[in-house]
């Protein structure tokens, strides 16, 4: 019977020292340092500054060969000089122009494909097969073929960019359309919407979060593909773009030029992701309450 649990009776006691329950100073004013340190932007800026200073000190103090790893200020100087006196700005414009052409052409083709897919089962099957086949194929691998078909020049860059945008956008848009709830579709039909107005006024807004994520993935692939393609074959079209600038600098062993090019690539990437797409998000899915 000793396996049964025994009842434990704790001895009675009285707490003599009630002062331990004292709450302390809860409403203490934060010091100015703490208040500043609590601002997100300032902490991040300090971290960024810390990284830059570490870089600068490391290169200057250890006297690292500038051909291998130039100091921050040296790279920055090169960037500013090339931006204001050189032709870097034209190279950037060239890259952005090619990117925009490829991106919008890819979006247009994706729109046509998805319209076809919503209209007929054949289209839907076609898009499923084609995306399954072409989405895993890195667009840059098409570059040798593109150069063969379209020659050296902007046309082959645009072809490769279309390939990198088209499948990501088509896949996401199509699956977004398929996931629109039956209720929303029936409401649209009740309003007498049909064909293209039905797609534009019901399906597109309802599937917008997934369309937007497709556009973001497409942008990321396109940007990577463009830089990769230009790194190799960019000069062929005369002026060449940002990727070509990086490659040229690295060929001439002007490593500070490589870093200057990388700064610009990062800057453009940040502007597109945090300004362009962020604003589109704020004005659409966030405002419509589909996404926090």
């Amino acid at each position: 019977m000793d396996t049964l649990p025994q009842l434990v009776i704790r001895p009675e006691f009285e707490n003599t020292d009630i002062k331990d329950a004292h709450t302390g100073n809860i409403a203490v004013e934060l010091s100015i340092v703490e208040k500043i340190w609590n601002i997100n932007g300032i902490r991040k800026a300090v971290i960024l500054l810390g990284l830059v200073i570490t870089w600068q000190i490391y290169t200057v103090a250890l006297d690292v060969e500038p051909l291998m790893f130039p100091s921050f200020l040296f790279s920055l100087e090169r960037l500013l000089v090339d931006l204001f006196t050189g032709d870097l700005i034209f190279k950037i414009w060239f890259s952005v122009k090619v990117l925009l052409i490829g991106y919008s052409a890819g979006m247009a083709i994706a729109a046509v494909l998805v319209l076809w897919a919503t209209a007929s089962r054949l289209g839907s099957d076609f898009i499923a097969t084609a995306t399954a086949m072409f989405n895993p194929l890195p667009a840059i691998a098409m570059l040798p073929l593109a150069m063969l078909w379209f020659g050296l020049g902007t046309a082959s860059l645009v072809f490769v960019l279309i390939h990198s945008v088209l499948w990501a956008v088509a896949l996401n848009t199509h699956s977004g359309f398929k996931n629109v709830t039956e209720t929303l579709k029936m409401i649209g039909e009740n309003y007498g919407l049909r064909g293209v107005p039905f797609v534009c006024k019901v399906l597109v807004p309802a599937a917008f979060p997934s369309i937007l994520s497709g556009m973001k993935v497409g942008w990321a692939f396109a940007w990577r593909t463009l830089i990769g393609a230009e790194l190799v074959f960019g000069a062929s079209s005369g002026s060449g773009g940002l990727g070509w600038y990086i490659f040229e600098s690295s060929q001439n062993i002007e490593t500070e030029g490589v870093f200057a090019g990388l700064f610009m690539v990062i800057l453009i990437g940040i502007v597109v992701e945090n300004v362009v797409f962020r604003n589109v998000e704020l004005r659409t899915v966030n405002r419509w309450g589909m996404q926090r």
């Binding site: 991040k44 291998m68 990577r224 990086i246 690295s250 490593t255 490589v258 090019g261 990062i266 992701e273």
Partner: peptide
């Protein structure tokens, strides 16, 4: 903070653009 600063900066940078530097190093 470190992670969010680094990712914000380096995520938009295509890895292939680092290849020339990597070859050098």
């Amino acid at each position: 903070d470190l992670l969010s600063t680094l990712t914000a900066m380096l995520n938009p940078l295509p890895a292939i653009a680092l290849l020339p530097l990597a070859l050098l190093w």
